[in-house]
Design a protein around this nucleic acid. Structure first.
Length: 312
RNA sequence: GCCUGAGUAGCUCAGUUGGUAGAGCAUGCGACUGAAAAUCGUAGUGUCGGUGGUUCAAUUCCGCCCUCAGGCA
């Protein structure tokens, strides 16, 4: 067995937004001298601390935190970059337990099961297909996929333009269909066996109440100003950051386009819908991960102690 | 008190020349390999305000009642 295959001590904590996973991560990290590492696609952006519910400076003082707010909003972040960042961070923090926490199911899949080694897409090719997607119908775009990647043509819905576009880009840029690339995955950053893993699994009603409460607290603590300051940057509306839940709603309210109460309701609804999508992912993509109901506080503490012990 | 309008899905509303109804949003369920807080698919739901009448049949027509909005007093 080479040094490469020796498993890193790590806890993986997934869960829907507002389910209390950051608190669990921090409690565990404090007890085992661990490093909290982000696994959330939006908390990486520097400009949005409040609206993405990033850990506060006080929280960050209690244990080292990594991969939070380390990306500029003008950058387009991707799973591939995340995996690179994660691998580098794991190297840099070797020797201490890693407490990886977040809500992005795709990132957990990529870190435990690997990602296909698709080469970077030629920018000209990418621009060509994005333009083409604007000029022809989704059905027509999907038809073009039939020629270069029949497998994905059959698997993707014609309206799923984002995936159809990716498949077309890859085939065009690499000369091989994406479905072929996807048959092989790279070695995972965190091989799954032997890790401590947990999925936060709160009751739906409890989560909804928390989401409601938390979003109102965000607004009360400056969420609107954060959105206004962000809008002042004048960034390209197609950037991934722009899709942060609550950001478009709060920018509209800051502009005076919609009443604040309406914007808050819209943001809360969007957050609930997101939580539902996350739960679907966790339920079906990671069915074997142990569940933890944050309401069962005695159990919660026992889990913290148990995991912290195993990490030492 | 009178006149007019409205009462249909959780919400906003459409509709039925009389044969028990439908969109959008919300909600549930699902898919997911470099935008994933993204992108996409799919499925419910109804005493058609109440009550009497006409009719083979009333959410639809008629009477009365209730509620809401506007106008007149």
């Amino acid at each position: 067995m080479t040094a490469e295959t020796v498993e890193r001590r790590a806890v993986l904590i997934a869960g829907p937004t507002a389910s209390g996973k950051s608190a669990l991560a921090l409690a565990i990290a404090e007890r085992c001298d661990g490093v909290v590492i982000n696994a959330d696609s939006m908390q990486v952006y520097r400009e949005l601390r409040i609206l993405t519910a990033r850990p506060s400076p006080e929280d960050e003082a209690r244990a080292p935190h990594r991969l939070y707010g380390h990306v500029d909003g003008s950058d387009g972040y991707t799973v591939a970059r995340y995996i690179q960042d994660l691998e580098r961070t794991l190297d840099e923090t070797a020797g201490r337990p890693a407490v990886i926490v977040g809500g992005t199911g795709l990132y957990f899949n990529a870190m435990t099961q690997g990602l296909s080694d698709v080469p970077p897409i030629d920018e000209k090719v990418r621009a060509f297909w994005r333009e083409r997607a604007r000029s022809i119908s989704p059905a027509a775009l999907h038809r073009e996929l039939a020629v270069v990647d029949p497998t994905l043509h059959g698997r993707l819905h014609p309206n799923d333009t984002q995936r159809v576009l990716r498949a077309l880009e890859v085939a065009d840029s690499t000369g091989r269909p994406l479905s072929e690339w996807q048959e092989k995955r790279s070695r995972p950053a965190i091989p799954g066996a032997g890790l401590a893993r947990v999925v936060m699994a709160p009751a739906r009603d409890w989560l909804h109440a928390r989401i409601d409460e938390r979003f109102r607290a965000m607004v009360a603590s400056g969420g609107l100003d954060e959105a206004a300051a962000f809008a002042a940057l004048g960034l390209d509306p197609v950037l991934p950051v722009m899709k942060a839940i609550g950001l478009p709603e709060m920018m509209a309210a800051a502009r005076g386009d919609v009443p604040i109460t309406e914007a808050v309701e819209a943001a809360i609804t969007a957050t609930r819908q997101y939580a539902k999508r996350q739960e679907t992912w966790f339920r079906n993509q990671m069915p074997e991960w142990p569940r933890l109901d944050p309401e069962a506080s005695r159990h919660f503490l026992a889990v913290v102690d148990d995991i912290a012990q195993r990490m030492k």
